[in-house]
Amino acid sequence: MKIEYQNLNLMLQKFKANPYKIYPVLTPHTGYIKEFKVKEGDTVRGPSGKWLEKPGSPLFVLEREKNQKIIRAKINGIVQNLRTDLLNKFVEAEETILEIKHPLSQKEIISEILLSALYIIKAPETARYILSPALASRLEKQGLGKVKVKKGEEVLIMTFMKRETPIYFSEDGNFVLYYIYFTPFQLVERDQPLLGFCQEENLPYLQKIIERIKEEWSDF
């Protein structure tokens, strides 16, 4: 196990000192900013519902080729650094329009701390990834924390430069897939975490860590 209890305390303290993450909201494509639906300091919500079927709060309207698109919040938080100077102006793709100061949730804290506790497979390239079909099918039947993986087993497929490249699990020992950090077919930057694995014998200890975080951290 890579994480000690003392380290866990330090980590939790660090998160408590600054329990926020700043998410910039970028334009998905070019167009004119036609209207702002928020102002500085507004609280916005990301998608919600069991299947995230309820869309996030509207942030601004982007018009391109006579089509208006409402850009919505993808995460909860408070609006800051709103670029009101861009109203009625043409903007390029990936221009930062505002930031959302997002209070970290219990689930996110667990995910961040697990990064230090688990054996992580990171993205070897900026590419799109999916789980290998065999692993995906076992995961569907057994669920996270129960699927065992062995050294040499194909766990991911990387779609990169028009080719598909398998990624294999390379650790000795009895591991289970514990956490998935990526969304299939979405672009993942190089070195970002993809999958987290835990040694089978450490599962009870890992569970204890999670319980501890849950006790100490409640959502806003």
Partner: peptide, 18 residues
């Protein structure tokens, strides 16, 4: 002009107009 994708027709035409 920065666009989202070289295959995005709408982006290309919006830039062409702008």
């Amino acid at each position: 002009y920065r666009i989202s994708d070289y295959k995005d027709m709408n982006d290309l035409l919006a830039v062409a107009d702008e």
